[in-house]
């Protein structure tokens, strides 16, 4: 494999979403992809600061991006929210001269950072570095007959002009992944609609409404479980499902298929 990935775990993968982190790292080791955690990292802030005058809230992402450049690595993300923040802040620094100048003025990097780092989500790494055809060959325990709904949510896909992750209205990377591990992907209409996100703290009733739509839509199409890359999606969907369609991290199924799940 080409170069080592520099892995950014984020606040929740070392605490409430340890499964997302551990199964991913075990799977990478099994697949022979070199990966190292950033020496120092801070929480990305979990939401992208949309206002053009917000600089301080872009700095933790900038530091992680700059460390990856220094080490000549791609920055690898797992959590949808971290991926969203890293990718968009990187895009801001590359494309907005005012933000670039202010971020560098605050950060005092040895060499000004101008958005050189490539931010790669774990699913993109599976697709582009290993390849789903190769992944399929490495599967020891195919998930034959398991009907699984991919839940994308918002943050991996939108806005598509910056995220460039997949077709924002008809994504298929997670379905390709599910095929590769031998499962049967179930397409349903709400797979790229929001789970309610952070509003769960202030208005749980509203979040229940949006989650119920997602869960009903998946259940009607015959999904037995959902998979996600986002700890907050998993929390919201799990809280509002009636037990019929549980939500897992996609890495948990990957580790199961590769035979590294303990």
């Amino acid at each position: 494999m080409d170069k080592t990935y520099l892995y950014y775990p984020g606040c929740t993968l070392k605490t409430k979403a340890k499964e997302l982190d551990a199964y991913a790292l075990q799977s990478m080791e099994m697949l022979g992809i070199p990966c190292k955690e950033l020496d120092e990292w801070q929480c990305c802030g979990a939401v992208y600061p949309q206002a053009t005058d917000e600089i301080a809230t872009r700095l933790s992402a900038a530091r992680a991006l700059e460390e990856a450049r220094q080490k000549d690595c791609d920055l690898l993300t797992l959590c949808s929210a971290c991926h969203h923040v890293m990718k968009r802040v990187n895009h801001d620094i590359a494309s907005d001269a005012d933000i670039r100048m202010k971020v560098n003025n605050y950060s005092e990097f040895e060499t000004p950072y101008a958005g050189e780092t490539k931010v790669v989500h774990f699913l993109e790494m599976l697709r582009d570095t290993i390849g789903f055809a190769e992944l399929k060959k490495r599967v020891l325990n195919p998930l034959t007959g398991r009907k699984i709904g991919a839940y994308y949510g918002c943050l991996l896909l939108r806005p598509s002009n910056v995220m460039q992750f997949d077709d924002p209205e008809n994504p298929y990377i997670m379905e390709e992944f599910l095929h590769a591990i031998g499962a049967e992907p179930v397409l349903y209409s709400y797979r790229n609609e929001c789970c309610g996100g952070y509003v769960a703290l202030d208005d749980p009733a509203l979040v229940q409404k949006v989650c119920t739509k997602v869960l009903h839509s998946a259940e009607q199409k015959g999904a037995e479980v959902l998979v996600t890359a986002c700890p907050l999606c998993k929390y919201n969907l799990t809280k509002h499902d009636s037990g019929d369609v549980p939500t897992y991290y996609f890495t948990e199924l990957l580790a199961e298929a590769l035979g590294v799940k303990e």
Partner: peptide, 20 residues
């Protein structure tokens, strides 16, 4: 808020705090 539900992920607290 944290005491009300031990399943709350850090991501929820951080994102709500950043927004609000």
């Amino acid at each position: 808020l944290i005491a009300s539900d031990e399943e709350i992920p850090q991501q929820l607290i951080v994102s709500a705090f950043r927004k609000y």
